[in-house]
Amino acid sequence: MCRIAAYHGPAIPLENIIVRPRHSLLSQSQHATEAKLAVNGDGFGIAWYAPHSAEPGLYRDVLPAWSDGNLPSLCRMITAPLFLAHVRASTIGETSRANCHPFTFQGWSFCHNGQIAAFPALRRRMEAALPDAHYAARRGTTDSEMLFLTLMARGFADAPAATLRSVLTEFAPESDAAPNRVTCVMSDGQSLLAFRHASDGKAPTLYLSGTLDNGGRAFASEPLDGESNRWTAVPLDTLVVLRDGQVAEYPLLAQAA
Rank of each mutant, 00 (worst) to 15 (best):
R125N: 14
S199M: 05
C111A: 10
P160N: 12
R76N: 07
L164W: 06
A159Y: 07
S199N: 04
E174N: 08
S96I: 00
F103A: 02
D158G: 14
F110R: 05
D200S: 08
T91Q: 02
L147V: 12
A133K: 13
T183H: 05
H86S: 00
H197A: 09
T91F: 01
G155K: 10
L122D: 14
F195S: 00
G201E: 09
G69A: 15
A117F: 05
A133D: 15
F148R: 06
F119G: 07
C111V: 03
D143K: 01
T79H: 00
S96H: 05
D188E: 05
F119R: 13
F195R: 05
S90N: 04
S175A: 10
D143C: 09
S199H: 09
A89E: 02
R138C: 08
P179T: 12
G107T: 11
F148Y: 01
A85H: 00
A85N: 00
G155H: 15
G189K: 08
D158L: 10
G201H: 09
L74C: 09
P102Q: 03
S175H: 05
E145Q: 01
A80N: 13
G201I: 13
S175E: 14
C184L: 11
A177D: 15
S73K: 08
L84E: 06
C111D: 09
Q106K: 14
R196T: 07
H112D: 01
D200G: 08
A153M: 07
A117E: 06
V185K: 05
S175V: 10
R123E: 15
F171M: 07
A172S: 09
S166M: 12
E127F: 15
A89T: 02
A118W: 10
C75R: 00
M126G: 13
T150R: 10
D176Q: 14
F156V: 01
E145D: 04
R76P: 08
F148A: 04
L130H: 02
R196I: 03
R154W: 04
V87Q: 00
L74A: 04
L147C: 04
L74I: 15
P102N: 09
A121E: 14
F171K: 06
T79E: 06
A133Y: 03
E94K: 12
P131A: 09
Q106L: 14
D200Y: 02
F119H: 10
V182S: 01
N113T: 07
R138H: 11
A161P: 03
A159M: 14
A118V: 04
C111Y: 02
L130Q: 06
A137F: 06
T141P: 06
L130I: 11
S73E: 08
A136Q: 12
H101A: 01
Q115K: 02
D68C: 10
M77K: 06
D176S: 09
R123Y: 08
L71I: 10
G69W: 13
Q115S: 14
L122F: 08
A194Y: 05
T142M: 06
M146T: 12
G69N: 10
D143Y: 03
P131V: 13
T142A: 09
P131F: 01
R123N: 12
D132T: 15
E174V: 11
L147Q: 03
A194I: 07
P173W: 13
T150L: 13
Q106F: 11
C111T: 12
E174F: 06
E145G: 00
Y135Q: 15
